[in-house]
Amino acid sequence: MGRYLGQKLLIYSLTFFFAVTIDWLIPRLMPGNPVDTLVSRMALRADVAAILRSYYLQAFQLDLPLWQQYLNFWGALLRGDLGVSIWLFPQPVLKLILDAVPYDLFLLLPAVILSWIAGNQVGAMAARVRWLDNSILPLGYILTATPYMWLALILAWSLGQVAGLFPIAGAYSFGIRPHLSWMFIKDLLWHWFLPFASLFLVMFGGWAIGMRNMIIYELEADYSRYLESLGAPPRLIRKYAFRNAMLPQITGLALQLGTIVAGAVATEIVFAYPGTGYLILQAVLNQDYFLLQGCFLFIITGVLIANFIIDIIYALVDPRIRTGMTGA
């Protein structure tokens, strides 16, 4: 197990190294001087442009040798210096991101975990109840084919705009300042519900279908047939099948992380929910290069950490890895 996790950790370190290098390399590979590109892209007053240019010049350090630039880049990164935002000049990018992270987690963690659990349960049920199968399966395919932002838009329009049941923008009402009170928490949850629901539903469809197909596959497997011919009750056979089908679902969670992140970003944009997704939209609209780069690093780091947590869980659940039989 230690070896397995060690291997994973090595891959993640390599990935991080690779990602940071790409991040550093891209501006330097683009035709022309990156500072000129960035400054000229904004229609600015001459004096502001001059300030910006001097800031960028100092940040990129293009006059140093390349290896020095590269080392300094890592140095700044490890010190947590991600530069300064243009959109909310002169706030540091790191602060903006750290402010956004709690909202991301508040939205994503419940949506991912609950949809995964519910999807697995319902998918397993669908594998043995005919009418459920006939209704869940088409629904699941529709949900998982739905772009996150569209379901978000539809929910916001129908339940928010038309029915007026939920607010459609922000993490809490405009007038209130965040503080610890029942009123604020209620307001927070009320704003949270629609973005959560749209993330939950799309993911739920995918997990339910995945589980249903995996279970049917497992029920056809040799070990199921053997148990059946030895008169084991369906309950036992399904229990085994469910457990074995969980393993690929855990791997599936890791594989889906990229898509989930993109979905969360899109959902936050629809609901103007102040997480990283919202930052990305603002950064794109405002040509805020350092903010984008910060979001990039944050997403990569988050995905890597999530991957590693999933690996640990997988190693704990799959006896084959626990006993060191395979490094799958």
Binding site: T37, L255, L257, G258, V261, A262, I280, L292
Partner: peptide, 24 residues
């Protein structure tokens, strides 16, 4: 395999964010 694993983990979105930031 190593390359596959690395690219598998990197979110498309993140890479495109960086590219998009530079390609006008």
């Amino acid at each position: 395999n190593m390359i596959t694993n690395i690219v598998l983990i990197l979110p498309t979105l993140a890479i495109l964010i960086i590219i998009a930031a530079y390609l006008t």
